[in-house]
Design a binder for these strands. Structure first.
Lengths: 242, 242
DNA sequence: CGTTGGGTTGATCGGTATCAAATAGCGTGG
DNA sequence: CCACGCTATTTGATACCGATCAACCCAACG
């Protein structure tokens, strides 16, 4: 088993899906091009028609939509091992943006190579399909978060979800982890203003729940955090039988 | 071409995807069981592990999630021709509920039959995969709607989206169409209370935009409606090349 | 050091929730 | 056909969450 740049993807798929070793090896063998993106650089824009899709090797990205009046909604936060634009395999045109939050390394794989692999190994197709279904499951929970929870619960939920996903790819050590968003971006993820985000963060800090500073979250009180987040991770379908 | 109960599905796929006639015929030939559900009857519940999935033949359904404190968020509204639980093909456990809004006729197809068909005709698999990706695209726009738009724009957007989708399956005639939700349910779709939903509907009526009465929407002023909805239908990917 | 992009705080406004109560419409049994 | 009961709808009064507007602060960096 050689070390590859798509190791985080493989790691996630290994524990999450029922992928066979053969399938994983076939995935590792996919030809890719590594490209680096700077913080805030746009990877794909609404309307683009890409012919390849990417695996996040390192760094964080977000998908977002901007509406007429300029307001922006962040739809999802993506971490190493994610395939944030896999849907383009079957939907020709991007209906949202994909942006690098931090400096990122992305491995691009041609749609044609993926299609060929899927045709020769249908079970790899199932793995990819499942991954897009997982994506949709996360969107569903995001709708609930934005639609039904008060802002402080909303923030706690986003934080817990992100931490769970980072854990699956081995990116959480101790009580702190990376969440390289500005307060403005956190607000765009929650559907509130940056001013209000700031006030919620202050309250959480004063209540001894967590600290957020320069893109790092540090959990101070796990119990209180859980209580706020009302997090039930079943929607992450993190074992093959779920 | 015989008339089948999954005609609405076929119609939608024919115009929306690049499905070949052979593929469509294969779909029509899938064995199914027709079952009827009453208004408000639950079809699948959070936690279920179904072994078949359904096509809506007639009637309306919603997918929803209920959180700890009892609040409910409607995630999507489904109409004839939709496959509202196709994700169970690869995600074993339901992470939300599927409920009949009105009396419904559903055609259930065994997962095994679908899997067999996909293995023998991979392009049918692509059609189904694409359909779940479309589902996710609608979720994304739903997040934007709930997260960024004011309540009256939100309602206008839901109405326009539903109308566009109903049009694709030939269920809009003139300026009126069915939307068999109670005001409470409309509120749950928008993330507002039923009281506020009522006030918004009154305002839209007084402004001469639309009337909503007993599950029917009647558009009074198309221009004002468009203005409110800020609707850009690209996310519905309604032609094969999008 | 000056500039600049976050971050922080205060004051005020407005949209939506909440609570309470009245009304209307529909299905059912008498 | 009518009375009843249920549910959905409607309206009013009040409270509060989060938006908005306006400063100011601070740390990083050229």
């Amino acid at each position: 088993m050689t070390d590859t740049t798509i190791a985080a993807l493989i790691q996630r798929l290994r524990t999450t899906t029922g992928a066979s070793d053969d399938d994983l090896r076939a995935l590792e063998a996919l030809p890719y091009t590594l490209r680096n993106y700077r913080e805030n650089q746009s990877i794909l824009r609404d309307g683009d028609r890409p012919s390849e899709c990417c695996v996040i090797v390192d760094g964080f990205c977000v998908r977002s939509k901007t509406i007429e009046d300029g307001k922006r909604q962040i739809l999802s936060i993506h971490i190493p091992g994610d395939l944030p634009d896999l849907q383009n395999l079957h939907l020709a045109t991007m209906d949202h943006d994909l942006v690098a939050l931090s400096n990122c390394a992305l491995a691009f794989i041609a749609h044609s190579a993926i299609r060929d692999l899927i045709r020769s190994r249908p079970t790899v197709g199932d793995i990819f399909w499942r991954d897009t279904l997982l994506d949709a499951a996360v969107f569903r929970e995001w709708i609930v978060n934005v639609g039904q929870r008060a802002a402080h619960n909303r923030l706690a939920h986003i934080i817990v979800e992100l931490r769970e996903r980072l854990r699956m790819v081995g990116r959480v050590t101790g009580d702190a982890f990376a969440m390289p968003l500005t307060q403005e971006q956190i607000g765009e993820a929650m559907g509130v203003t940056s001013v209000h985000t700031n006030r919620i963060l202050r309250q959480l800090r004063l209540d001894g729940v967590l600290e957020f500073h320069r893109g790092t979250v540090k959990i101070l009180n796990e119990h209180k955090l859980q209580e706020l987040a009302q997090f039930d991770g079943r929607y992450l379908h993190s074992s093959p039988s779920t």
